[in-house]
Write a protein that binds this DNA or RNA. Structure first.
Length: 564
RNA sequence: GCCCCCGUAGCUCAAUCGGAUAGAGCGUGUGGCUUCGGACCACAAGGUUGCGGGUUCAAGUCCUGCCGGGGGUGCCA
């Protein structure tokens, strides 16, 4: 393994290379049959007796090679190029190869980590590929809800992970600033506005019944006065709708910023109509042959597209009244992202209530000749929000909402982010606001932050002794080596999270790292002591730990305090 | 009905293309403060991974049938 100037050591990758070389060498000598070797699976054994890393490659090869897996393991170990990394490489039944890192090599890695500092964890996976992450994108028809916080935390953290993994990332918020929902919103806002002025204008049946609409109308009335009442209702509704919409967009932007989320682009749906892109893309789609006119509407015949990217049923692109559906503008939007702006990959993060949209979106992309694999869509499950025993159903239309702003005020941005990130997107989430607020001090996020603050405290106390001159070869204590091993896992976790678009690995790793630091290293190894050489060496290790803890926190968008 | 997600310790959740003895946090019980920061640490109890079949050297993980929860199934988004 080599530490290049812009990437971090990944032990796993080195083992894969060693095993690949060993396999080729064995085949060259006729010790293994000439079959195509799969990439070696590498894992970290739970049992320390099995070494630091293990491969089950012999077990995978046994059938095809028609050989005993233990025999294959012995052959591979025999052909393995020497590496300074490992103290021991052993075979173990039924056919594992176990690798144990050497103490001297481990200790040396502390220098490498301190040298790259904030860049530790950077891996060349992305090769500069351009990836856009689009997330939250809630309709501007109400304040962001607690559920939006999950998508926000996921999307922002994924963007940070991909960036560290060598991708050029861009965060985007798609603003549905037009369409039927906004129409209903405008009419509701007009009704509330008129009601405040004593007029008997009912909220439409399909309107937004939440009390926040009354508040919004009141704010606008205070700012803009009564003049909209004298306009024709349709015009008044449209103008009030635009004002309300813009206020809510500004509010969303501010709330997300308070959560540490800043977008590169807020993309307007209306702009797709203004530039005629919707019409152009509909033409392109028509040329694909998957468009049909019937019953006065224009349909996308995705059911004819075949099994995998297809959809069970057809979907309307243009209503019989001539107005395109959201689906139509969304196809144009993705055409803009994938073709016009040319992102290599576009990751959409949607709530589970949009899952039905996935197959038809993929089908439409396919019909336009775009590889649907360039559009991974992450569906995160809903969150069940509770206040103690009471379950809060959230719907902007009924108005029963808990806003993201309230969540941030109650539990804090750091705790909220850590909580949202700790669950895999697939898992339903249970969020008890009372509990989260009441137990905020026991929240795992503080454990990680505390570990970081403690490293800072030790370095402060060290004063001039912390001059970076420590001799890392003095780091031989089991607890010191355990801490180094755990730190070396960080680039692997970044890779895992980036490859699978799974941010939840980061908080889990952060917790493990903090535990090893506090329970093993700090508990067993006093840093500041009479032994000046040992003190300097351990200070360097603490610096490394501070860097890696800080990197995990930064990756999650959570503060890394110097003191608490 | 059909499609998608989930079901793992009392609770909330992990478990790296299927790997060796299924792990954390909270909660519970016991013990520890002469503190490089006690927002801490040690130990303990707690599991037939919803149930039944199947594939495999190996299944929480893959296939299949049930059971239970959530979501989707609009000329809404």
């Amino acid at each position: 393994m080599r530490l290049t100037e812009d990437s971090s050591p990944v032990v796993k990758d080195e083992i894969v290379q060693l095993l690949t070389a060993a396999g080729a060498s064995a085949q060259g000598k006729g010790l293994l049959p000439p079959l195509t070797l799969p990439e070696a699976p590498i894992e970290r054994p739970a049992n320390p007796a099995h070494g630091d890393y293990a491969s089950s490659l012999p077990l995978k090869l046994a059938r095809a090679a028609r050989m005993n897996p233990m025999q294959i393991a012995r052959v591979l170990v025999g052909e393995l190029p020497s590496s300074a990394m490992f103290a021991r490489v052993e075979t173990a039944p039924p056919g594992f190869i176990n690798f144990s890192l050497g103490p001297a090599w481990l200790a040396e890695q502390v220098n490498a980590i301190v040298a790259v500092g904030p860049d530790f964890g950077h891996i060349p996976l992305g090769r500069g590929e351009r990836v856009q992450v689009e997330f939250v994108s809630a309709n501007p028809t109400g304040p962001l809800t607690a559920a939006s916080g999950r998508g926000g935390a996921l999307g922002d953290c994924l963007a940070r992970i991909l960036q560290l993994a060598g991708y050029r990332t861009s965060r985007e918020y798609y603003v549905n600033d037009t369409g039927a929902q906004l129409e209903a919103f405008s009419q509701t806002l007009y009704a509330r506005y008129a009601q405040l002025l004593g007029r008997d204008v009912p909220v439409p049946a399909h309107g937004y019944h939440g009390s926040y609409m009354i508040d919004l109308a009141r704010e606008i009335l205070a700012a803009e006065g009564e003049r909209y009442l004298s306009l024709p209702p349709e015009q008044a509704a449209a103008e009030l709708g635009r004002i309300g919409r813009d206020r809510l967009i500004a509010d969303a932007r501010a709330t997300l910023a308070d959560m540490g989320i800043v977008y590169d682009c807020w993309f307007s749906e209306q702009s797709l109509y203004d530039s005629s892109l919707v019409a152009r893309v509909l033409d392109l789609l028509r040329q694909s042959g998957y468009v049909e006119d019937r019953e006065g509407a224009v349909w996308f015949t995705s059911s004819a597209l075949g099994e995998s990217p297809g959809d069970q049923k057809d979907n309307v692109l243009v209503r019989s009244n001539g107005i395109p559906t959201y689906f139509a503008s969304d196809i144009a939007y993705h055409y803009d992202k994938l073709v016009i702006r040319g992102f290599d990959r576009v990751i959409d993060i949607w709530g589970a209530d949009h899952q039905g949209h996935v197959p038809r979106m993929k089908a439409a992309i396919t019909a336009l000749g775009i590889d649907p694999d360039r559009l991974p869509i992450i569906i995160h499950q809903m969150i069940t929000l509770r206040r103690g025993e009471e379950i809060v159903r959230m719907s902007k239309r009924t108005g029963d909402i808990v806003t993201l702003r309230e969540v941030l005020d109650e539990v804090g941005a750091d705790a909220a982010r850590f909580f949202f990130l700790s669950r895999s997107a697939d898992a339903h989430m249970d969020f008890d606001l009372d509990l989260a607020a009441r137990q905020s001090k026991e929240n795992p996020v503080y454990y990680v932050q505390y570990a970081h603050a403690r490293t800072a405290s030790i370095l402060r106390n060290a004063g001039p002794l912390d001059d970076g001159s420590g001799d890392v070869s003095l780091l031989r204590h089991d607890a010191e080596l355990a801490l180094i091993k755990k730190m070396l896992q960080f680039p692997e976790v970044v890779e895992l999270a980036a490859r699978n678009d799974e941010p939840h690995h980061i908080p889990h790793y952060a917790l493990e790292l903090a535990s090893v630091f506090q329970q093993e290293f700090y508990e067993h190894c006093r840093v500041l002591s009479d032994d000046e050489a040992q003190t300097r060496a351990r200070l360097k290790l603490v610096r490394a730990a501070k860097a890696v803890l800080g990197n995990t926190l930064r990756l999650m968008g959570i503060g890394a305090p110097e003191q608490m």
